[in-house]
Structure formats: structure tokens, C-alpha cells
Amino acid sequence: MSFPSSSLPLAVSVGEPSGVGVDITLAAFQRRQSLGLPRFFLLADPEMVARRAERLALDVQVRTIGSPDESGADGRFLDILPLVNPHSEAPGRPDPANAAGTIEAIDRATRLVLDGAAAAIVTNPIDKKALYDAGFRHPGHTEYLADLCASLTGRACQPVMLLTGPDLSCVPVTIHIPLADVPATLTCELILSTARIVARDLSLRFGLERPRLAVSGLNPHAGERGAIGREDEAVIRPAVEILRTEGFEVVGPLPGDTMFHPEARARYDVAVCMYHDQALIPAKTLAFDETVNVTLGLPIIRTSPDHGTAADLAGTGTARPNSFIAALRLAGRMAGIGDAVEDSPA
């Protein structure tokens, strides 16, 4: 599919400063020309980033800019839009005092995309415990972005997490909740709204004219027609049937233990799963370094690496930037940066 071309840069939020977000951003910037990465700028504390580059012995110079349109003017420098709230440079040691800057980076990046100053946002991982200790009250990054977009636009949105890699794309219907709460949270209406958003955004963002959805069951063997739990027949199957009457190409509920082998994956574009790990375990197992987290259902394009802060690797120079690089590339393709491309979920 041909996407409209955009000359705007990507906005990258720094994430948790004690984690590997800074490391992988620096590593990606070093390889930007050889890999042909889209232009991006980082919302961060410039001094903290410069100290991390020195710690990692990376030949990366940082430059402070005043607005996104200044980014890329001198390709020798990693352009940074500075934060009002400073960040300490302490790899592996999360500090609630850094929370204000972490949230500021997300907020400002989101505003810049909504205002048309940046093409998309690529978010580095956050440490939810450090944010919780500072008063953060959202289940996760995805839910926070949805509430932020709703408050800025005045339009409610349902965030849908898509994990997409070269061999598999998965969506969890329920996300950051305890496993014990999944059966009560899982409703026919939630499955329907999630699947509709997935189908719409696969068409709008990825160019799939008629996306093929595979809906998993919740219980072992998809419930064995009610013998192993009632949710599959009482909640999931009715949702699948309604989606079919609405014209969607969808199958299910399918047993979770037989829908991820190669032959099964060839029959669908996205697996719609019932809970977080049912989706993320196969996606990350198949392609941990190439899988990207995309948030569907938002008025902006948002991608992210598929991993966490990896604080034990921060500052060591051993963190691999592959998933972050894939997130940059996918955000660029979705936003139409550079040449028109053809791309779709696995």
C-alpha cells in the first residue's frame, strides 16, 4: 500500500532513565545512516544523555533544540528537546524523583504529534514501580497514552496493544490486569470493540483491505464446548458470530495451544487473544528482537520496543537496540516518512 509522504520527524520519549532506553537510542542514532532510519529527536535531559554516552564510550554528540523543526539540521548531533524536569544518570537504580521528567517526555511528545509538529511517537520503556511510587495511577504506558489523548482531544479512545513481528502479530483483549481478574473482565462487548479497532487500524495504518482475525479461546482446548469452562461458549463465540454478521473475516474461538504453529499462522493476519501473556509469549518467543509494540485505537501513531527497562543492562553497553530500531522503522512506515512503502503485520 502507498502511504502519504511526511517530512516530519519522529518524537522519541526517553522512558525510564535508569533503564536501557537511553542506551538503545544512542546505539540506534550511531547506526542511523547505515540503516536508513527516519529522522528523530529525543525528549530527554541533555546532560543525562551526554553522561550516558560517555559512560558507554559512544562517539555521539548531543545538541539541544528548541522545536522539532530544528531537528536533523546537522546530522552529526543527536537532537534533544530538553525537559523542564531533570533526570539523574544512575543506570540500574530507578528513582521516583525521575518520574516527573519521564511523564513530561511522554506528555510533550504526544502533544507534538497531535499538534502536527511530529509524525509519530516512539516511546522508550518506563519503570511502572518507580512511577507508582511517585503517584502514577495508570495500569501501564498504553492506558496512560489513551487517557492523555482523550484529555487533549476531548474524545474517548480504547487503546489496543498490537505486538507485531516478522512471523506473528498478536493483540491481547485484556492487558495489564491480574490473571485472576480476566474472566470477569472479558465480555462480548470488549471483544467486539477490540476486534473492530484492530480491523479498522489494520486497514488504515497497514493497508490490509480485508484483515483476517483469529480469535483465541480462554480455557484449555477453547473450553471443549463448555466442558472446561463456560466463557468460550457464553462470551467469545457469540462475539465471533456477531463479527461475522458485520462482515469481518474472523475465526474462533481457537485453542490457544494450536493456533501459533507455522501452518496455523499462515491462515490469519492477527491473533486476537484473551489476556496479556497468551498474546505476548508467542510473539516474543518467535522474534523478541524484531517485535514492536504498537498502540491501535489512538489518534496518533505510537510504537515502542517490545521489552522492558532491563535496568540490569543499563550502562553496560550490552543492550541490543534491535526492537527499538524496528519501532523507529515501523513508526516511519506508518507515518509515511520517506518513500512510499508496502508493509503489513505478519
Rank of each mutant, 00 (worst) to 15 (best):
F29M: 06
I126L: 00
C170W: 03
R39V: 14
N219H: 00
L280W: 01
Y275V: 05
L179F: 04
G101F: 02
R93Q: 15
V173N: 01
P282Q: 03
E189V: 12
P253F: 00
H276Q: 01
D45V: 01
F248N: 03
I175Q: 08
P166N: 15
G36F: 02
S7V: 11
R267L: 15
V113G: 10
G229E: 00
D115Y: 12
V22N: 07
E47V: 14
I301P: 08
R155S: 08
R225D: 12
A227H: 01
D181Y: 11
E231Q: 07
Y268P: 10
G226F: 06
R333M: 14
G252E: 00
L114K: 06
P38R: 05
A100L: 07
S344Q: 14
Q33D: 15
L296G: 12
T194F: 03
V173D: 02
L208F: 10
G154D: 13
Q33K: 15
A327M: 07
L313T: 04
D107V: 14
A327H: 02
A118L: 09
A99S: 04
L202K: 05
L43H: 06
S5W: 14
D45L: 05
L243I: 05
L298W: 06
P159T: 03
P125H: 04
R244H: 01
G223S: 03
